[in-house]
Design a binder for these strands. Structure first.
Lengths: 248, 248
DNA sequence: CGACTTATTGACCATCATCAACATGCGTGG
DNA sequence: CCACGCATGTTGATGATGGTCAATAAGTCG
């Protein structure tokens, strides 16, 4: 970490400072921006349960487990996936600091997928029933929950279309870059914490295809890749390639 | 319609009877099952605005329009899609009687896609702000909204995986069958109200591929197809084919 | 009946997956 | 510190699934 000039994204979303953390979390709007007084804020904060650290490969929840709480990723990266009867994984998503895991479990009251830590992960866990109850008293919190849920409905579209391998990978890089940038990390130097296989699986490509496309993008001087560290050299070129997928 | 022995799904979700309608709508739990007294029920019902009929091809909402309300499909089928700069459509979903459109618009307060009627469509429209406010007073309604939103997050996975054309089509048929059956329509005789092109587009396949797979399934006596009327002759065979996609 | 849309079928081809070999990095233990 | 071994990543050769292009058929609506 310290050998890099720019603050890479391996850092946690906070520096141990509670308020700073909240400002990068998906609930920050509800916590900070709505001008609520102490009692409501206190009510939300009292729900928070800091859990972790989880280490690489640690299971955070399993498919079929009873759903009781959602969690904001405070530091590290979480991978969610399902696995079929043959044990083949299907990666559903990667969750970066500030993002919320567990929202897709509300419907059946069970987790519909597994979640594991890709590196050292810290979470802020919220009891969902308590949060929902609180949301009836703090409209801003209810709004935020509705928005987070609504947002996730569209997100899956990234991997839905029938785009070329190049478009998918470009979109993945730009999307990841934007998400990091939103939390104050570098937009052009990314530490991608997942293996090529996970990346490929998420994008519904073969690992070999990912390798080849990354090679091509490097030959074109659009990115540079050194193991898990990606540098986006021509952000706009990449963005153009990703355009059909991201639509913005 | 009347020439078919079985009640095909072209029928609306109600028979003009208000209560019957509610029992097939996605809000039925909130409306009926929670044991609420008159005042809350009345509050929800007073929000309902019956709109339509829309006719085939009529636009229900456009991408970018201000989001003000969600709507339950009361009769007919709604197709949602985005279109890129070249005017190429990308079908996102088909909404059958009892299902809710507009949930993915909450996040940005604008509709992220277009919606058109595939046939004669009737809607029950609810102002979303009013509904959200009401949801703070009726916990069952809030729960229902959370569940509907959460459910839609997972739904996109149907077309996300890298499944074969056959698996996708089988999954589409089974999924449609189940959704109709849930509302009391025949599970084995389906009127598919969309063109092959829409079907193919939704499944991210070429129309030609859809034709060929349907042909093969007919040769295998697994289904029979006559124009838009599909009969599922070997439901379980189809279900087995769809298993990897549907996972249940 | 004729023009148009929708669906089907066939021939060919491109993208990406698969299989296999090889390279590289990293951790462990001698 | 180096050697070994395993996991991860890269590169090349080949092939299959499904897309594209084109022609034909079959409804549908005037």
């Amino acid at each position: 970490m310290s050998k890099h000039a720019v603050r890479l994204n391996r850092a946690s979303a906070d520096d141990g400072d509670e308020l700073r953390f909240c400002s990068t979390c998906a609930f920050s709007d509800a916590c900070l921006s709505q001008g609520y007084g102490k009692p409501e804020l206190e009510a939300l904060h009292v729900l928070v349960e800091h859990v972790g650290p989880y280490h690489e490969g640690d299971v955070i929840f399993r498919e079929g487990e009873d759903f009781k709480s959602i969690a904001a990723v405070r530091a590290g990266t979480v991978k969610t996936f399902v696995s079929d009867s043959n044990g083949n994984e299907q990666v559903l998503g990667f969750f970066l600091p500030g993002e919320i895991i567990g929202l897709n479990a509300i419907h059946h009251n069970k987790f519909p997928c597994h979640a594991v830590a890709l590196d050292t992960v810290m979470l802020c866990r919220f009891s969902f029933p308590k949060m929902a109850l609180l949301a009836t008293k703090i409209p801003g919190l209810q709004d935020q929950l509705f928005k987070l849920l609504s947002q996730d409905i569209g997100k899956a579209a990234l991997l839905a279309g029938d785009y070329s391998a190049e478009q998918r990978i470009a979109a993945f890089l730009i999307s990841t870059s934007r998400r990091y940038a939103e939390r104050g990390f570098s937009a052009t130097q990314l530490l991608m914490p997942m293996t090529r296989a996970d990346m490929a699986n998420y994008l519904r490509l073969a690992p070999e295809t990912v390798s080849r496309v990354l090679r091509r993008l490097q030959d074109l001087k659009i990115i540079s890749v050194d193991r898990r560290v990606f540098v986006l050299l021509q952000y706009d070129a990449l963005e153009r390639m990703a355009m059909p997928v991201l639509r913005s």
